[in-house]
Amino acid sequence: MTKVTLTVNGRAMSGECEDRTLLVHFIREKLGLTGTHVGCDTTQCGACVVHMDGHSVKSCSILAVQASGSTITTIEGLAGQGELHPVQAAFKEHHGLQCGFCTPGMVMTAVDLINREGGTLTEETVRAGLEGNICRCTGYHNIVKAILAADAEMATGRQAAE
C-alpha cells in the first residue's frame, strides 16, 4: 500500500491504496467524492474528467500514486457552497443534460476549454474540444449551446473585471 496525498477541492486529503489504483477509483472510493463517474476505464468516454493542476484529465488514465502531490478539482469543488459555476448554470438553463451520467465530465472539460480559449469559442471549437467526451442521450446540440452561453457570460465577466 502506498500513501497518496492530494489537495482536493481546496482541502488536503490523503489515503492509502495499491499502486495500481486509478485516480478515479481513489477519488470515489477512498475520498468519497462520487460526482466523478466511472464510465469505461479506458479513456474513451470522458465521464471521469477532473482538473489536475488546473487542466482537465481523464482520471481513469492516471494512477493515484502518479497524482500524489497534485491539486485536484472535482465537480463537487467547481463552485462555491450552494452556488453553481457558470458552466453548470448554463447546462441547467440550456438543457445540456438528460440522464446526467456524462455531465460532470462534460462540465469539467468545458471549464478547461473556456479557461484556455475563452471568448473565442465557436460551435466548431466546442465540438472539437468535447472530442473524447461521449453523451449517449442528447445529440450534443444543447451541450454546445450551453458551453457557448457560459463562454459568453464568462467573457463578459472577465471584461468587466479588467
Rank of each mutant, 00 (worst) to 15 (best):
A128N: 11
E18F: 04
L63W: 11
A149E: 02
G157Y: 02
T7S: 13
L23Q: 09
A150E: 03
H95K: 10
E93G: 14
G105W: 07
A149F: 02
T120M: 07
E93A: 15
G118M: 05
T120A: 12
T2I: 12
A155K: 09
L23A: 07
I72Q: 01
D112S: 15
A89I: 03
I27W: 08
S56F: 07
V4D: 08
G119K: 09
V87D: 02
F26C: 05
G35R: 09
I114N: 10
R158W: 05
G132S: 08
T74A: 08
C137Q: 07
Q159S: 11
A146H: 04
N9S: 05
R116H: 02
G132C: 05
Q81I: 04
E117G: 00
A67H: 07
L31K: 06
R136S: 05
V38Q: 04
Q88G: 09
T156W: 04
T5C: 03
I143G: 01
P86T: 14
M108C: 06
H37V: 05
G139S: 05
A47T: 12
L130F: 15
D151H: 01
E153F: 03
N115L: 10
T125P: 00
R116T: 13
H37E: 13
N115C: 00
G129F: 10
L6T: 12
V38Y: 07
E131F: 09
H37S: 08
A12D: 14
C99M: 12
V24N: 04
E131L: 13
G32K: 09
Q66R: 01
T42I: 14
S68N: 03
G15K: 08
M52Q: 14
